[in-house]
């Protein structure tokens, strides 16, 4: 199995051009920065509101864009061409994931700057955000493999967006309903806890557990995506 950067680059460039001309999908990357700008200008922004925006960016950009990229290949019958080419599964998925990854990171950076969020320890936050991005990309790939068209993908991604961007508010209910304690292991809430601890000045030693949980989510989502890909693509 040869791993060719030239092919990955070809897929990346093709997807970039295709994506930039597909306004219906590319519009979503502007939403989180615009919302962030509002929150930043209104003042009195809390760490929760910053993370609502960041989690929304994950759902809208990482998951949504990734699932649309894959679903469109299926809908337009172009995935067959890719699979008949010498490009391997890893190369196809890497090329596609690379574009969504870059877009997510750029959108989140822009949102953070516009919202005026200034984390106390940039390195830890960066690692946490990159790990979370992988989780959402895996989730997006999974949705894209399930959906048969872009339309279906955009409907499927809605619950993901809602659970992961507004789901952070679940924390408030944990006191009342102890069963919701399980939900605190969700990657979006883990991310928020990391951010809160960083602000409180706690060092890396206490945070690695949270990072490990997010990493586990990311690995799980990618593993499922690969299994589903193999299953779906055989027939």
């Amino acid at each position: 199995m040869t791993f060719s950067w030239k092919r990955i680059n070809a897929i990346f460039m093709k997807d970039y051009k295709d994506f930039s001309r597909n306004l219906a999908v590319s519009m979503v990357i502007f939403l989180p920065p615009i919302l962030a700008a509002f929150i930043g200008r209104m003042g009195a922004a809390s760490i929760e509101s910053y993370y609502m925006i960041i989690n929304m960016a994950f759902g809208m950009v990482a998951s949504y864009v990734q699932s649309c990229l894959i679903a469109e290949e299926k809908e337009k019958n172009t995935l067959r061409g890719l699979m008949l080419s010498p490009a391997t599964t890893t190369e196809i998925l890497t090329g596609k994931t690379l574009l969504s990854f870059v877009l997510t990171i750029v959108t989140i950076l822009l949102s953070i700057v516009l919202a005026g969020y200034n984390p106390a320890n940039i390195a830890i936050i960066a690692v946490a955000i990159i790990l979370s991005t992988f989780f959402y990309l895996g989730l997006g790939t999974l949705l894209g493999l399930y959906a048969k068209s872009v339309m279906e993908a955009s409907v499927l991604v809605l619950p993901v967006m809602i659970i992961f961007s507004f789901g952070t508010m679940i924390i408030a209910l944990v006191e009342q309903y102890p069963i919701l304690k399980a939900a605190t292991y969700l990657p979006n809430i883990q991310l928020l806890e990391i951010a809160a601890k960083v602000e409180a000045g706690i060092g890396f030693g206490d945070i690695w557990l949270h990072l490990a949980i997010i990493a586990a989510w990311a690995v799980a989502s990618f593993a499922t995506a690969v299994v589903i890909y193999r299953k779906r693509m055989v027939d």
Partner: peptide
Amino acid sequence: FFFLHHSLYERLSVLEMLRFTKKLHH
């Protein structure tokens, strides 16, 4: 293979499509 249903990226130009194919297949 030349399939009955073509698999082309509709939003790319002809030249971009051919360049992509060329790179993909080395």
